[in-house]
Design a protein around this nucleic acid. Structure first.
Lengths: 217, 217
DNA sequence: GGAAGCATGTAAGATGTTACATGATTAC
DNA sequence: GTAATCATGTAACATCTTACATGCTTCC
């Protein structure tokens, strides 16, 4: 058993399990479904398809089209279907990752003016509100469709997260405004003394692949 | 003006702005501070240092050590300091990305048994609770340190998110258990009919670099 | 009738991770 | 006294993105 496939492979297998699609269609489908919590670019979809094809997990049929470029429509093979179910059943998946540049800015907020920090927080809240609104629509729509329970659950996740994000932003804004904390900007020297302590304080969360399904001891 | 630097570069600049460090120290510092919302591997830190050095934004001094390998301690240059402040001030940053394999599994929950779905949700909640507990400690600690307002805000973000994640997991669990939704498993055929509609329903959220600061029209 | 967009992809390059190397030091 | 860990990195590789190619079609 070689290195396990990355999550992106299973994402593609999963979408193809719903209906056969071309690479282009797949990329669209990603953006409109799992893209909220597992983004993939168009080209990455194509290279996943290449790999899965060479592994025999999907197979593609060329289809000629009028006034459009020919396309290859891919569908799961038996092996692909099994691989997908095995992954769904296993606990051996990558850990989640969150990458939020705005938070990096906030972390170094002592180098910014109060106003600038407030503005970054505002932006975060604004983005989160927009996302919330969008996801609220999707969630409500999916809620009506009895068969769409799992897509609904996924969409709700995004909704709850963006709500929490907006709430956090406002909580911090109020807290910073209310307290004396926010005074003492451009006082990096003291902060750098503090730095050592901070780095000691926080345990290191390790990410990456987790929960390896232990074979027989 | 060449291609703008990736967020990771500024993350390194930011940490070096607190205190000069070796690559090894930096990697530790990342894990214990911004790693929660901007993870970087050790090796990536080194390659960022290489780039920043060649750009003249940081400079390293070799230091010999007894019974330990020599190290190079890096610090910001004037240009590096300016680059950092400029980034903090700008609105031209990458968008956030969330990659959550467990959610991909949930999305394809129709291929799993009810029990298995419940277990995945449980796992998510468990992980979130563990993360919450850790971050609660950090947050409370930082709350006491007047100068640590911004690190506090960042930690609080992680805390609020993991709380929301755990809450979501339980909300979905209850909802799935209560409703008739969860029946009709292994009924992928209907779901695949549905698939088209789903893909139509959801607007495509585009990610990547945003808010380009518009130059003069 | 030129510009923008759709429907397909491919090629090149940047970003990020896992595995390896090495000598000292500490833990059992 | 061997195994694990620390403190430094480097080399090799996998993942993901941005830019390009191409012919049709729709918009103004």
């Amino acid at each position: 058993m070689a290195r396990p496939l990355p999550t992106s492979s299973y994402a593609v297998l999963g979408l193809l399990s719903l209906t056969p699609m071309s690479g282009y269609d797949l990329a669209q489908a990603v953006d409109k479904s799992i893209g909220h919590f597992w983004p993939m670019s168009k080209t990455q979809v194509y290279s996943e398809l290449g790999r899965l094809d060479s592994l025999g997990l999907v197979e593609g049929h060329a289809i000629e089209q009028e006034r459009l470029p020919d396309k290859r429509v891919f569908r799961l093979t038996e092996a692909g279907s099994r691989a997908l179910d095995q992954w769904l059943d296993s606990q051996d998946h990558e850990g989640p990752t969150f990458r939020i540049p705005a938070l990096v800015k906030i972390f170094f907020g002592h180098r910014m003016s109060r106003e600038r920090v407030a503005q970054v927080l505002e932006d975060v809240a604004g983005d989160a509100d927009a996302e919330s609104e969008q996801l609220r629509g999707i969630t409500e729509l999916l809620e009506q469709i009895p068969k769409a329970a799992h897509p609904w659950a996924s969409a709700l996740y995004g909704l709850r997260m963006s709500e929490a994000c907006a709430a956090w932003s406002r909580e911090v804004r109020d807290r910073l405004a209310a307290s004396d904390w926010a005074r003492g900007h451009h006082d990096a020297s003291l902060d750098s003394e503090l730095a050592r302590d901070l780095f000691e304080a926080a345990p290191a969360p390790r990410r990456g692949r987790r929960r390896r399904s232990g074979g027989p001891s």
